[in-house]
Design a protein around this nucleic acid. Structure first.
Length: 233
DNA sequence: AACCTATGCAACCGCTCAGGC
DNA sequence: CGCCTGAGCGGTTGCATAGGT
């Protein structure tokens, strides 16, 4: 696209005289020079200091997603793709958090990759995750099912959000969480459905196996997710 | 060649949160 | 405390382009 058409596309915001739309090379150069000299932050004064007709938000986004020198460009590698899937299963749509494990990638990139992947899989009738992975994540994410807990004495102790990756018919793995006790509704077979008291050690590490207190052999419980909306509890 | 559609990506918008006063 | 402001996050939108007809 020519710069003149870019000019045309990017609207002048009449009210506060701010530009919107695609950034030009000149704008990029001004912003990059400013941040190189002063460091990132104080985005709202960038406009005053540089004369850029862009709001602070826009400057921050442009720097974060395009101008930062440590950015990795190009398509996601297979390893990166697998990592995103793994991270999403663990934490849901926490794009910014995922960037900590995907150096050089931005939250926007990860989000776009995920949404594109999701669309593709839906189109061909596949689920969100590869076989064998059942996520535990956020109650507010309608795309996913929840592992939910039932609560004794109507006391809600906590939710499973961000806390566990559950693989069907595998021992339940629990990352560090602060919940001390929950009653957990596990279904092994429907007729055996019962309440289990779950005791978590104070400093629970990432491979804590729940034990059924009624289980004399002290074998790990094998859990299946109970699909139920949290707000229904 | 012209048009249409699908796709990917960049940017914006609205909301939340944290820090300062 | 409550308010204000700036920064950050996640969802959504809109544009450019590739591919198909």
């Amino acid at each position: 696209m020519s710069s003149s058409s870019l000019e045309h596309k990017s609207n002048e915001n009449e009210g506060n005289n701010l530009r919107k739309g695609q950034w030009t090379e000149e704008e990029d150069a001004i912003l990059a020079a400013y941040v190189t000299q002063h460091g990132p932050g104080n985005w709202n004064i960038v406009k005053q200091r540089t004369g850029l007709l862009r709001c602070g938000k826009s400057c921050r986004l442009r720097w974060t997603n395009h101008l930062r020198p440590d950015l990795r460009r190009g398509a996601f590698t297979k390893e990166e793709q697998n990592k995103v899937i793994e991270l999403h299963a663990k934490m849901g749509n926490k794009w910014a958090k995922m960037t900590q494990d995907l150096p050089g990638r931005t939250d926007n990139e990860i989000k776009n990759f995920w949404n594109t992947r999701l669309k593709k899989r839906k189109r061909i009738g596949l689920g969100v995750y590869p076989d064998g992975i059942q996520p535990v994540h956020d109650a507010h994410n309608p795309e996913t099912s929840l592992i939910t807990y039932t609560h004794r004495d109507s006391e809600v102790v906590g939710t499973s959000s961000e806390h566990a990756m559950l693989t069907q018919n595998q021992p339940l793995l629990v990352p560090p969480i602060s919940i001390v006790r929950e009653n957990m509704n596990l279904s092994v077979k429907p007729e055996e459905k019962q309440m289990y008291d779950v005791q978590l050690p104070e400093a629970c590490t990432s491979s804590c196996v729940f034990n059924n207190s009624n289980n004399s052999q002290n074998q790990p419980l094998y859990a299946q997710p109970i699909f139920q909306e949290l707000h229904d509890l």
